[in-house]
Simulated scan of single mutants.
Amino acid sequence: MSDLINVAKLAGVSRATAARAFSDPHLLRTDTLQKVLMASEQLGFRPNHIARQLRTQNSTTLGVLLPSLLNPIFARQLQAMERQARVAGYGLLVATSDYQPEREAAIVEHMLRQRVAGLVLTVADADHSAVLQTLQQAEMPFVLTHNVPQESHWPAICVDNRQAMQEATDHLLALGHRHIGMVAGPMLQSDRARLRYQGYGDAMQRAGLLSLPVIEMASHTQSDFARLQPQLQGDTPLSAVICTNDLLAISLIGAAARAGVRIPKQLSVMGFDGIDIGEHMAPSLASVTQPVDLLGAGAIDMLLQQASRGTRVLPHQIRLGASIAAPALSLIANSREPS
């Protein structure tokens, strides 16, 4: 990375003036400041040592990177984080990646240039994220939410996605379902979804049943019923599906109704997240509930403590709803092995 001297040379100013552009920009003339900032941008220079000083003395802004605010789970988490940060005297700078891993680096770089004091973020893949390596090298405090690092010790706060999905599948198995599928958005964009699929597979294997390939949708929040419909036909149709988030489950229930599939008589549907709107649907949505208020507030606490390492696992619950029921007798008959 180019150092401050190279920035000064390119801008045609002294090193002291270049340093002042990052530490006391209000002391420089506008045209001089713009020259330094343009040179810094051109050379890819980020003043780590100055940023550290600003973080420890002056910065009262925390960065937040979330996949989306269209999903109420992230919006409610953000609200909890904003409340907790405000109590501690901090404001939030918020950005969304739209579930696009390639956008994460640009967003984080922008936040570093904005001199945030630390970041709370959810990335596509915590164990293979170059963004987290960048933050570590910049000595920038950060906390992951929802991500569950498997090969590293990044600070994180989450539920046990694998265990939660195993329990959700166990509940459907206890109702008598044997042909259960999992519906997800693009799997490469979510390490959480991959862990949930492992939990589904754990439960099916323990029950001596075949776990099916993920029914992958093009979107994390919009279902394409045509991708599921073939699984509802034939000699062994699915009697239940678990979706990797509630919005996907709600979309699927609507699509099923339009296709004439009755929920839960013909197909039980369970979600994941426990968003409030699911309880007000007809039928009400069964779901794995995450303590999102606790997660949001806990992420800010972990970030400001800065001594936190490893993963803090929060409790989850299974919220029952009218979207799941025991399978119809005809489906049970079809699921029996031939004698």
Rank of each mutant, 00 (worst) to 15 (best):
L10Q: 09
A326N: 03
Q189C: 11
P155F: 13
A124L: 13
L66I: 06
R55Y: 10
T311N: 09
T32Q: 07
M111C: 14
M182Y: 02
D170T: 12
N6I: 00
A124S: 14
D246Y: 06
D191H: 08
Q57L: 06
E102G: 07
L33A: 12
G91A: 07
R319C: 05
T289S: 11
A156P: 12
G260N: 11
S97A: 06
L303N: 04
S23T: 04
P327H: 05
A168L: 10
A259F: 07
N161Y: 00
L209N: 11
T96P: 14
E109K: 10
I215T: 04
V313H: 07
Q317F: 04
R55H: 07
L43F: 14
Q133E: 15
P237K: 03
H153R: 14
N161K: 01
D246H: 08
L93W: 13
D202I: 00
L92K: 07
R20F: 01
E82Q: 15
A184Y: 02
T134N: 10
P47M: 05
P230R: 11
L247P: 08
P72A: 03
R258H: 13
M217A: 02
N147W: 03
F45L: 11
S339G: 14
H153V: 12
G91K: 05
A249W: 10
D31G: 03
L188C: 06
Q77K: 08
A307D: 10
R194H: 01
G185W: 03
F45N: 01
R46N: 04
S97F: 02
P155E: 10
R113G: 13
L195Q: 15
Q317N: 11
A184C: 13
A259T: 03
Q53E: 09
D235S: 11
V159M: 07
V13G: 04
M187I: 14
I318W: 15
Q290G: 01
Q57D: 08
A18F: 06
R113F: 10
D301S: 09
H177G: 01
L10M: 14
S68W: 12
R196P: 00
L295E: 02
A297M: 03
D98I: 12
G296V: 03
L4W: 10
L285C: 08
A80V: 14
A19N: 13
Q150Y: 07
E109H: 13
T32H: 05
L70D: 15
Q57C: 01
A282P: 00
H153I: 12
L238G: 05
L69F: 09
Q189E: 11
Q166F: 00
E337Q: 13
I263D: 02
L228R: 02
E279G: 06
D224P: 05
M204R: 02
G260K: 09
I250C: 08
T32V: 15
P47I: 09
T122V: 09
Q100A: 13
G208I: 05
S287R: 00
R262H: 08
